[in-house]
């Protein structure tokens, strides 16, 4: 079976606003396109796609499959899976990438089942094997204790989901152009089995881990909920956010909004300071792509030191306050 030499990025949007992960996927998709010679395309189901086209081109899409229907204003699994699968059936692309968002993680597995396609979740690395002409999809498994490269040799398309903040977004320019393919897909036959009656955006306190330049995270070594003040102190001095390991969240020391890791948030700050975190790779999977990692731990054999750029061996309860003090002195 010969598939069309195209790489598709699912252009996730709600109410005409594209999700940030779309730009990250396009940026990474450009590298795959360069290596494979395939064409990078965006698939945009929406209630009105035109205002979003320029940005998709700017991040590297050469072609946009534009599907419009009032029923595609917000996400509904039955409508969106029908649209994406119909398009795949018609165009038969080699590769389809989705954000590993609430939406992507509903849509992608549904489409995979519809088309007997391969799907690899939460990839942290994508590469193209030019010899075998296949996508290499690398992801953590067993809580991140091990990395696996997954391939899909005989089925098409090859599909992956990728979390936000795993790949960096990079605009090509501000006035890229490309082709728009208008596609009509008839949704009248899709029975409305579910209806969204309310959608609420919550300002989850002040934890903006995804946008923070500096993150200071505490693990089991912090010792108690009260001791998180030490972590907050350093985060405050650096102007950053507070993160936490799963162990501390499970112990009820801090809210799950702070959790970094495979089952928490994936973050990509300039500097990540891991305090008293042993480095179960479940945690590492969520912060490994930070530009610079500082580990503070009293156990010199802790696996966190494997991924650290700087390791400070010693008692966090002494080192972190000292760090805060010296930063404050520097800033004043």
């Amino acid at each position: 079976m010969s598939a069309k030499k195209e790489i598709w990025v699912f252009a996730e949007q709600e109410n005409g606003k594209l999700a940030g992960v779309v730009f990250e996927l396009l940026s990474e998709g450009r590298k795959l396109a360069a290596k494979s010679g395939y064409t990078l395309c965006a698939v945009l189901p929406s209630a009105g796609g035109k205002p979003m086209h320029q940005e998709l081109f700017n991040y590297g899409a050469k072609k946009i499959y534009n599907v419009e229907d009032p029923r595609l204003q917000t996400y509904q699994n039955d409508y969106f899976s029908k649209v994406v699968y119909s398009l795949i059936e018609k165009e038969n692309p080699e590769i389809v990438l989705y954000g590993a968002s609430t939406i992507g993680r509903s849509l992608a597995p549904t489409v995979a089942v519809m088309g007997w396609a391969g799907l690899t979740a939460d990839c942290t690395e994508l590469d193209f094997d030019t010899e075998r002409q296949i996508l290499l999809q690398t992801r953590p498994a067993f809580g991140g204790n091990i990395m696996a490269t997954i391939i899909c040799p005989d089925h098409r398309p090859q599909m992956s989901t990728v979390r936000s903040n795993v790949f960096k977004k990079e605009r090509v320019s501000e006035n890229e152009t490309g082709e728009v393919v208008e596609v009509k897909i008839d949704l009248s036959g899709v029975k409305e089995r579910m209806k969204r009656v309310e959608s609420v955006v919550e300002e989850v306190n002040t934890v903006d881990l995804k946008a923070a330049d500096y993150i200071v995270s505490g693990g089991r070594g912090v010792g108690s909920p009260e001791n998180f003040k030490v972590i907050e102190g350093l985060a405050g001095a650096l102007g950053g956010a507070v993160g936490a390991s799963r162990a501390t969240v499970d112990a009820g020391w801090i809210s799950h909004h702070h959790q970094v890791g495979q089952t928490g948030k994936t973050v990509c700050p300039l500097v990540y300071v891991a305090c008293g975190i042993s480095g179960a790779i479940q945690h590492l999977a969520g912060m490994q792509s930070a530009d610079l990692i500082i580990a503070i731990n009293k156990d010199p054999d802790a696996p966190i030191f494997d991924v650290a750029d700087f390791g400070l061996i010693g008692d966090l309860h002494k080192i972190v306050p000292e760090f805060t003090k010296q930063i404050n002195a520097l800033r004043s």
């Binding site: 391969g118 990395m147 696996a148 991924v307 650290a308 750029d309 700087f310 400070l312 010296q326």
Partner: peptide, 28 residues
């Protein structure tokens, strides 16, 4: 449809610097 191609340990950073000693000196 999917097959495991390769399994490996998560990468280890090679150019790391490990500091130890007095907290004030390390932090400095």
């Amino acid at each position: 449809p999917t097959k495991v191609n390769k399994v490996f340990a998560p990468p280890v950073k090679l150019n790391k610097e490990i500091l130890s000693g007095e907290p004030a000196d390390m932090v400095k």
